[in-house]
Protein backbone atom coordinates (compact mmCIF):
# COMPACT_ATOMS: atom_id res chain seq x y z
CA UNK A 1 0.00 0.00 0.00
CA UNK A 2 2.90 2.34 0.75
CA UNK A 3 4.44 1.56 -2.63
CA UNK A 4 1.14 2.29 -4.23
CA UNK A 5 0.86 5.60 -2.40
CA UNK A 6 4.34 6.63 -3.45
CA UNK A 7 3.70 5.63 -7.04
CA UNK A 8 0.46 7.48 -6.97
CA UNK A 9 2.24 10.54 -5.60
CA UNK A 10 4.90 10.50 -8.32
CA UNK A 11 2.15 10.19 -10.87
CA UNK A 12 0.49 13.23 -9.34
CA UNK A 13 3.72 15.22 -9.72
CA UNK A 14 3.94 14.18 -13.35
CA UNK A 15 0.35 15.25 -13.89
CA UNK A 16 1.07 18.61 -12.31
CA UNK A 17 3.96 19.11 -14.69
CA UNK A 18 1.71 18.25 -17.62
CA UNK A 19 -0.82 20.73 -16.32
CA UNK A 20 1.83 23.43 -16.18
CA UNK A 21 2.67 22.83 -19.83
CA UNK A 22 -0.99 22.73 -20.70
CA UNK A 23 -1.93 25.85 -18.82
CA UNK A 24 0.92 27.63 -20.52
CA UNK A 25 -0.16 26.35 -23.92
CA UNK A 26 -3.76 27.33 -23.37
CA UNK A 27 -2.69 30.89 -22.72
CA UNK A 28 -0.62 30.84 -25.92
CA UNK A 29 -3.37 29.38 -28.06
CA UNK A 30 -5.47 32.42 -28.96
CA UNK A 31 -4.14 34.51 -31.84
CA UNK A 32 -2.36 37.64 -30.77
CA UNK A 33 -0.94 38.36 -27.36
CA UNK A 34 -1.52 40.76 -24.52
CA UNK A 35 0.16 43.60 -26.39
CA UNK A 36 -2.14 43.13 -29.39
CA UNK A 37 -5.13 43.31 -27.08
CA UNK A 38 -3.68 46.28 -25.19
CA UNK A 39 -2.95 48.18 -28.38
CA UNK A 40 -6.42 47.46 -29.72
CA UNK A 41 -7.81 48.79 -26.46
CA UNK A 42 -5.68 51.93 -26.68
CA UNK A 43 -6.57 52.43 -30.33
CA UNK A 44 -10.27 52.11 -29.65
CA UNK A 45 -9.99 54.80 -27.01
CA UNK A 46 -8.38 57.05 -29.60
CA UNK A 47 -4.73 56.83 -28.53
CA UNK A 48 -2.24 56.59 -31.38
CA UNK A 49 0.18 53.68 -30.97
CA UNK A 50 3.48 53.56 -32.82
CA UNK A 51 5.02 50.19 -33.89
CA UNK A 52 8.13 51.02 -31.81
CA UNK A 53 6.02 51.40 -28.70
CA UNK A 54 4.42 47.99 -29.37
CA UNK A 55 7.83 46.41 -29.94
CA UNK A 56 9.10 47.87 -26.67
CA UNK A 57 6.19 46.47 -24.80
CA UNK A 58 6.75 43.01 -26.31
CA UNK A 59 10.41 43.01 -25.33
CA UNK A 60 9.61 44.20 -21.87
CA UNK A 61 7.29 41.25 -21.28
CA UNK A 62 9.52 38.74 -23.05
CA UNK A 63 6.90 38.13 -25.69
CA UNK A 64 9.42 38.15 -28.52
CA UNK A 65 11.39 35.06 -27.49
CA UNK A 66 10.37 31.52 -28.64
CA UNK A 67 7.49 29.84 -26.84
CA UNK A 68 9.57 27.23 -24.97
CA UNK A 69 11.87 29.94 -23.68
CA UNK A 70 8.86 31.82 -22.43
CA UNK A 71 7.67 28.64 -20.71
CA UNK A 72 11.05 27.94 -19.10
CA UNK A 73 11.35 31.51 -17.92
CA UNK A 74 7.88 31.26 -16.42
CA UNK A 75 8.69 28.00 -14.66
CA UNK A 76 11.99 29.33 -13.40
CA UNK A 77 10.29 32.32 -11.88
CA UNK A 78 7.60 30.13 -10.37
CA UNK A 79 10.17 27.94 -8.66
CA UNK A 80 11.38 31.11 -6.92
CA UNK A 81 7.88 31.93 -5.85
CA UNK A 82 7.54 34.63 -8.45
CA UNK A 83 4.50 34.04 -10.58
CA UNK A 84 5.09 37.08 -12.74
CA UNK A 85 3.25 40.33 -13.00
CA UNK A 86 -0.22 40.75 -14.23
CA UNK A 87 -0.06 42.50 -17.58
CA UNK A 88 -3.38 44.15 -17.00
CA UNK A 89 -3.17 45.11 -13.34
CA UNK A 90 0.58 45.80 -13.34
CA UNK A 91 1.12 44.15 -9.94
CA UNK A 92 2.51 40.72 -9.01
CA UNK A 93 0.05 37.97 -9.90
CA UNK A 94 0.12 36.56 -6.38
CA UNK A 95 -1.09 39.88 -4.97
CA UNK A 96 -4.20 39.60 -7.09
CA UNK A 97 -4.83 35.92 -6.52
CA UNK A 98 -3.75 35.84 -2.87
CA UNK A 99 -6.86 36.12 -0.77
CA UNK A 100 -9.12 35.13 -3.61
CA UNK A 101 -7.68 31.62 -3.71
CA UNK A 102 -8.33 31.06 -0.03
CA UNK A 103 -11.77 32.61 -0.25
CA UNK A 104 -12.55 30.38 -3.21
CA UNK A 105 -11.49 27.36 -1.22
CA UNK A 106 -13.59 28.52 1.72
CA UNK A 107 -16.63 28.87 -0.52
CA UNK A 108 -15.99 25.52 -2.20
CA UNK A 109 -15.39 23.64 1.01
CA UNK A 110 -18.53 25.07 2.57
CA UNK A 111 -20.48 24.16 -0.58
CA UNK A 112 -19.14 20.61 -0.34
CA UNK A 113 -19.94 20.41 3.36
CA UNK A 114 -23.43 21.69 2.63
CA UNK A 115 -23.82 19.18 -0.21
CA UNK A 116 -22.64 16.20 1.81
CA UNK A 117 -24.39 17.26 4.97
CA UNK A 118 -27.69 17.35 3.15
CA UNK A 119 -27.25 14.70 0.46
CA UNK A 120 -26.02 11.91 2.74
CA UNK A 121 -28.87 11.81 5.26
CA UNK A 122 -31.56 12.53 2.68
CA UNK A 123 -30.15 9.95 0.26
CA UNK A 124 -30.01 7.37 3.04
CA UNK A 125 -33.52 8.17 4.17
CA UNK A 126 -34.90 8.04 0.63
CA UNK A 127 -33.36 4.63 0.02
CA UNK A 128 -34.35 3.10 3.33
CA UNK A 129 -37.88 4.46 3.01
CA UNK A 130 -38.15 3.96 -0.73
CA UNK A 131 -41.51 5.08 -2.16
CA UNK A 132 -42.53 6.74 1.08
CA UNK A 133 -44.17 10.15 0.88
CA UNK A 134 -40.97 11.80 2.11
CA UNK A 135 -39.02 9.96 -0.59
CA UNK A 136 -41.33 11.38 -3.25
CA UNK A 137 -41.08 14.87 -1.78
CA UNK A 138 -37.28 14.74 -1.69
CA UNK A 139 -37.20 13.41 -5.23
CA UNK A 140 -39.44 16.25 -6.38
CA UNK A 141 -37.40 18.93 -4.61
CA UNK A 142 -34.25 17.27 -5.89
CA UNK A 143 -35.35 17.54 -9.51
CA UNK A 144 -36.23 21.19 -9.02
CA UNK A 145 -32.80 21.71 -7.49
CA UNK A 146 -31.25 20.12 -10.57
CA UNK A 147 -33.38 22.06 -13.02
CA UNK A 148 -33.05 25.59 -11.62
CA UNK A 149 -29.80 27.21 -12.78
CA UNK A 150 -27.82 28.32 -9.77
CA UNK A 151 -27.43 31.93 -10.96
CA UNK A 152 -31.21 32.16 -11.11
CA UNK A 153 -31.39 30.82 -7.57
CA UNK A 154 -28.83 33.48 -6.60
CA UNK A 155 -30.90 36.23 -8.21
CA UNK A 156 -34.09 35.04 -6.55
CA UNK A 157 -32.49 34.80 -3.12
CA UNK A 158 -30.90 38.20 -3.50
CA UNK A 159 -34.20 39.70 -4.54
CA UNK A 160 -36.00 38.07 -1.63
CA UNK A 161 -33.28 39.15 0.78
CA UNK A 162 -33.35 42.71 -0.45
CA UNK A 163 -37.09 43.08 -0.89
CA UNK A 164 -38.27 41.43 2.33
CA UNK A 165 -35.34 41.68 4.70
CA UNK A 166 -33.75 44.83 3.41
CA UNK A 167 -30.40 43.07 3.39
CA UNK A 168 -27.84 43.03 0.65
CA UNK A 169 -26.79 39.44 0.80
CA UNK A 170 -24.08 39.50 -1.86
CA UNK A 171 -20.38 39.37 -1.21
CA UNK A 172 -18.44 37.52 1.43
CA UNK A 173 -17.86 40.38 3.85
CA UNK A 174 -19.78 43.17 5.50
CA UNK A 175 -18.70 46.61 4.25
CA UNK A 176 -16.76 47.40 7.41
CA UNK A 177 -14.52 44.36 6.94
CA UNK A 178 -14.09 44.67 3.19
CA UNK A 179 -10.73 46.45 3.30
CA UNK A 180 -9.78 45.43 6.82
CA UNK A 181 -6.86 43.18 7.62
CA UNK A 182 -7.48 39.63 8.71
CA UNK A 183 -8.72 39.30 12.28
CA UNK A 184 -10.99 36.99 14.23
CA UNK A 185 -13.80 39.44 13.61
CA UNK A 186 -13.24 39.32 9.87
CA UNK A 187 -13.07 35.51 9.94
CA UNK A 188 -16.35 35.34 11.81
CA UNK A 189 -17.86 37.82 9.35
CA UNK A 190 -16.74 35.51 6.52
CA UNK A 191 -18.23 32.46 8.19
CA UNK A 192 -21.53 34.27 8.57
CA UNK A 193 -21.53 35.10 4.88
CA UNK A 194 -20.66 31.61 3.67
CA UNK A 195 -23.97 29.71 4.05
CA UNK A 196 -25.77 31.52 1.25
CA UNK A 197 -23.18 30.95 -1.50
CA UNK A 198 -22.78 27.42 -0.16
CA UNK A 199 -26.52 26.87 -0.50
CA UNK A 200 -26.65 28.32 -4.00
CA UNK A 201 -23.56 26.55 -5.28
CA UNK A 202 -24.37 23.32 -3.51
CA UNK A 203 -27.99 22.88 -4.52
CA UNK A 204 -27.46 21.23 -7.89
CA UNK A 205 -24.72 18.98 -6.54
CA UNK A 206 -26.87 18.05 -3.57
CA UNK A 207 -29.76 17.03 -5.77
CA UNK A 208 -27.41 14.91 -7.86
CA UNK A 209 -25.71 13.27 -4.89
CA UNK A 210 -29.06 12.44 -3.32
CA UNK A 211 -29.94 10.50 -6.46
CA UNK A 212 -26.58 8.75 -6.47
CA UNK A 213 -26.71 7.88 -2.77
CA UNK A 214 -30.26 6.63 -3.06
CA UNK A 215 -29.49 4.42 -6.05
CA UNK A 216 -26.27 3.05 -4.55
CA UNK A 217 -27.83 2.34 -1.23
CA UNK A 218 -30.81 0.61 -2.80
CA UNK A 219 -28.34 -1.67 -4.56
CA UNK A 220 -26.41 -2.34 -1.37
CA UNK A 221 -29.53 -2.94 0.71
CA UNK A 222 -30.40 -5.89 -1.53
CA UNK A 223 -27.11 -7.63 -0.83
CA UNK A 224 -27.05 -10.73 1.35
CA UNK A 225 -24.69 -9.24 3.93
CA UNK A 226 -27.52 -6.92 4.97
CA UNK A 227 -29.72 -9.94 5.71
CA UNK A 228 -26.83 -11.48 7.64
CA UNK A 229 -26.45 -8.35 9.73
CA UNK A 230 -30.19 -8.24 10.37
CA UNK A 231 -30.22 -11.89 11.34
CA UNK A 232 -27.53 -11.14 13.91
CA UNK A 233 -29.99 -8.91 15.75
CA UNK A 234 -28.40 -5.53 15.00
CA UNK A 235 -30.62 -2.51 15.22
CA UNK A 236 -31.64 -1.28 11.80
CA UNK A 237 -30.05 2.16 12.08
CA UNK A 238 -26.71 0.91 13.30
CA UNK A 239 -26.70 -1.83 10.70
CA UNK A 240 -27.44 0.50 7.81
CA UNK A 241 -24.80 3.00 8.82
CA UNK A 242 -22.15 0.38 9.41
CA UNK A 243 -22.60 -1.81 6.35
CA UNK A 244 -24.48 -0.60 3.26
CA UNK A 245 -23.85 3.12 3.77
CA UNK A 246 -20.16 2.55 4.00
CA UNK A 247 -20.27 0.59 0.77
CA UNK A 248 -22.35 3.28 -0.91
CA UNK A 249 -19.82 5.98 0.05
CA UNK A 250 -17.28 5.04 -2.63
CA UNK A 251 -18.68 7.27 -5.37
CA UNK A 252 -18.86 10.20 -2.95
CA UNK A 253 -15.22 9.87 -2.15
CA UNK A 254 -14.05 9.24 -5.67
CA UNK A 255 -15.74 12.39 -6.95
CA UNK A 256 -14.20 14.52 -4.21
CA UNK A 257 -11.27 15.48 -6.44
CA UNK A 258 -13.45 16.76 -9.26
CA UNK A 259 -15.83 18.64 -7.03
CA UNK A 260 -13.47 21.55 -6.60
CA UNK A 261 -12.91 22.55 -10.25
CA UNK A 262 -16.55 21.71 -10.89
CA UNK A 263 -17.67 24.23 -8.31
CA UNK A 264 -15.25 26.88 -9.56
CA UNK A 265 -16.13 26.65 -13.22
CA UNK A 266 -19.80 26.29 -12.37
CA UNK A 267 -19.64 29.23 -10.03
CA UNK A 268 -18.38 32.00 -12.29
CA UNK A 269 -21.80 33.36 -13.10
CA UNK A 270 -23.01 32.92 -9.54
CA UNK A 271 -19.89 34.64 -8.25
CA UNK A 272 -20.54 37.54 -10.62
CA UNK A 273 -24.18 37.78 -9.55
CA UNK A 274 -23.39 37.56 -5.86
CA UNK A 275 -20.28 39.69 -6.14
CA UNK A 276 -18.11 37.00 -4.57
CA UNK A 277 -14.40 37.82 -4.50
CA UNK A 278 -13.53 34.34 -5.74
CA UNK A 279 -11.22 33.19 -8.44
CA UNK A 280 -13.77 32.29 -11.12
CA UNK A 281 -14.60 35.84 -12.30
CA UNK A 282 -10.92 36.75 -12.13
CA UNK A 283 -10.04 33.85 -14.43
CA UNK A 284 -12.76 34.85 -16.86
CA UNK A 285 -11.54 38.40 -16.97
CA UNK A 286 -7.90 37.39 -17.32
CA UNK A 287 -8.75 35.13 -20.23
CA UNK A 288 -10.77 37.83 -21.98
CA UNK A 289 -7.95 40.31 -21.53
CA UNK A 290 -5.31 37.72 -22.49
CA UNK A 291 -3.54 38.54 -19.22
CA UNK A 292 -1.39 35.45 -19.65
CA UNK A 293 0.57 35.33 -16.41
CA UNK A 294 -2.51 35.80 -14.34
CA UNK A 295 -4.61 33.31 -16.33
CA UNK A 296 -1.75 30.80 -16.49
CA UNK A 297 -1.19 30.96 -12.75
CA UNK A 298 -4.87 30.51 -11.98
CA UNK A 299 -5.21 27.53 -14.33
CA UNK A 300 -2.08 26.06 -12.81
CA UNK A 301 -3.37 26.46 -9.27
CA UNK A 302 -6.74 24.95 -10.14
CA UNK A 303 -5.00 22.05 -11.86
CA UNK A 304 -2.76 21.39 -8.87
CA UNK A 305 -5.69 21.53 -6.47
CA UNK A 306 -7.59 19.05 -8.63
CA UNK A 307 -4.66 16.65 -8.75
CA UNK A 308 -4.23 16.93 -4.99
CA UNK A 309 -7.96 16.40 -4.49
CA UNK A 310 -7.88 13.29 -6.64
CA UNK A 311 -4.81 12.03 -4.82
CA UNK A 312 -6.48 12.51 -1.45
CA UNK A 313 -9.70 10.87 -2.59
CA UNK A 314 -7.70 7.90 -3.90
CA UNK A 315 -6.00 7.45 -0.55
CA UNK A 316 -9.33 7.85 1.26
CA UNK A 317 -10.89 5.26 -1.01
CA UNK A 318 -8.21 2.75 -0.12
CA UNK A 319 -8.78 3.47 3.51
CA UNK A 320 -12.54 3.02 3.24
CA UNK A 321 -12.64 -0.01 0.95
CA UNK A 322 -10.35 -2.91 1.84
CA UNK A 323 -10.93 -4.54 -1.54
CA UNK A 324 -9.25 -1.60 -3.25
CA UNK A 325 -6.48 -1.78 -0.68
CA UNK A 326 -5.87 -5.39 -1.63
CA UNK A 327 -6.02 -4.86 -5.35
CA UNK A 328 -3.33 -2.25 -4.92
CA UNK A 329 -1.23 -4.12 -2.43
CA UNK A 330 1.66 -4.60 -4.80
Amino acid sequence: MLTYTIRRFLLALLTIWAISVLSFAIIQLPPGDYVTAYIAQLASSGVDVTPEFAENLRQQYGLDSPVYVQYLKWMQQISRGNFGRSLEWRVPVLDIIGDRLWLTMAVSVSAVLFTWGLALPIGIYSAVRQYSIADYIFTFIGFIGLAVPSFLLALILMYVGFRYFGANIGGLFSPEYLQADWSLGKLWDLIKHLPLPALILGTAGTAQLIRIMRANLLDELRKPYVITARAKGMSELRLILKYPVRAAMNPFISTLGYLFPFIISGSIIVALVLGLPTIGPLLLRALVAQDMFLAGTIVLFLGILTVLGTFISDILLMWVDPRIRFERRE
Partner: peptide
Protein backbone atom coordinates in the same frame (compact mmCIF):
# COMPACT_ATOMS: atom_id res chain seq x y z
CA UNK B 1 -32.27 -18.40 16.49
CA UNK B 2 -29.37 -18.07 14.08
CA UNK B 3 -29.30 -18.10 10.29
CA UNK B 4 -26.78 -19.43 7.80
CA UNK B 5 -27.65 -18.99 4.20
CA UNK B 6 -26.70 -19.79 0.71
CA UNK B 7 -24.40 -17.04 -0.50
CA UNK B 8 -21.05 -17.61 1.13
CA UNK B 9 -19.56 -15.10 -1.31
CA UNK B 10 -21.64 -12.15 -0.26
CA UNK B 11 -23.09 -12.88 3.14
CA UNK B 12 -20.21 -11.17 4.88
CA UNK B 13 -19.63 -7.50 4.26
CA UNK B 14 -16.38 -7.00 2.34
CA UNK B 15 -15.65 -3.84 4.28
CA UNK B 16 -14.80 -5.43 7.60
Amino acid sequence: IALVFQEPMTSFSPHY
